[in-house]
């Protein structure tokens, strides 16, 4: 990857540079990433065993919330893949640290937008993580191939990547905004974990949201969280179709825009609070 591009080639050049720098920096953590991805498969396997135990207590071929065992297993496998592609790794902690030790000061002086800069680092982190996690996850998918359901429709090859891309943007913006609370509070990690608890439940990480009572499921669809995992996985499985599909994409896009505006607002408010410690 060559990036000795002169400044004349526009604003993209410097951000491309940030991406490549980010990739080089995160490559250092590849062993850590591998451990993380591999260890993550242990609880996943446990969850799948648990579901198999539940289905084995029922007549063969029966469904829970319209999920057969195969679809249920596929749902969790999809969530694992989407999560590997989009989850924030260290980004929120790094942003908090930048604010705490005054490193954001330099962004106020440089012609570099902090949000765009962090987004580039997030993207490069995702590229490396996905690349590393691919090995254990692909092996795992191979062992589970008997359960794996294919995409519901040829259109999935277009729609699923779009929804995963939007999910990634939304995921980043949520983490970014929560990390910006460092402008006001001493230790932001509690807020990060509280936010993550809600996300873990409402994004469909624990279980598919459409096995919940219908009213609760519909209510959750108004929050941003289902558009992180449940929605892209549902599109792939063909569980979200017709009007729900287009409404879902509109909601997802609307939440990305809203999250962007909230992030910008929080940043400008935060800067008023900011006293560059350590300058």
């Amino acid at each position: 990857m060559s990036h000795s591009v002169p400044a004349a080639s526009g604003p993209w050049a410097k951000y491309a540079h940030v991406v490549s720098m980010g990739i080089q920096n995160t490559l250092v953590y590849r062993a850590n990433f591998l451990f993380r991805a591999a260890f993550g498969l242990v609880p996943l396997t446990a969850t799948l065993f648990l579901w198999e135990a539940i289905y084995s207590g029922r007549p063969a071929g029966s469904a829970i919330g319209a999920y057969t065992l195969g679809q249920m297993v596929s749902y969790y496998l999809l969530v694992t893949v989407i999560d590997a592609i989009t989850a924030v790794a260290e980004d929120d902690w790094q942003i908090a640290a930048d604010i705490k030790d005054g490193a954001v000061s330099q962004f106020l002086l440089k012609p570099l937008d902090y949000l765009a800069y962090r987004l580039c680092l997030y993207l490069s982190g995702r590229v490396v993580y996905t690349g590393v996690a691919l090995i254990p996850v692909a092996l795992f998918l191979f062992f589970q191939r008997g359960h794996l359901v294919g995409p519901s429709d040829p259109w999935c090859w277009v729609l699923v990547p779009i929804s995963v891309f939007l999910a990634g943007l939304l995921q980043f913006l949520i983490a970014y905004t929560v990390a910006l609370l460092s402008f006001w509070v001493l230790d932001v990690s509690t807020f990060i974990f509280i936010q993550f608890a809600f996300e873990y439940l409402a994004s469909g990480h624990l279980f598919p949201l459409d096995i919940l009572p219908d009213a609760l499921h519909r209510l959750l669809l108004w929050s941003p969280y289902p558009y992180l995992l449940h929605f892209p996985a549902g599109v792939y499985l063909g569980r979200i179709r017709g009007d729900d599909l287009w409404r879902g994409f509109c909601m997802q896009a609307a939440w990305v825009v809203a999250a962007f505006l909230i992030a910008r607002f929080t940043w400008s408010r935060g800067l008023r609070q900011y006293t560059a410690v350590g300058g």
Partner: peptide, 29 residues
């Protein structure tokens, strides 16, 4: 106090997960 809240939330999450599972079955193994 916030750390106590964080841990309590995650505990609630585990219980909620089991609650949802038992909404669809009477026994697991």
């Amino acid at each position: 106090l916030l750390w106590i809240v964080v841990e309590a939330l995650w505990f609630g999450l585990q219980l909620a997960f089991m609650g949802v599972l038992y909404g669809h079955t009477d026994q697991i193994a």
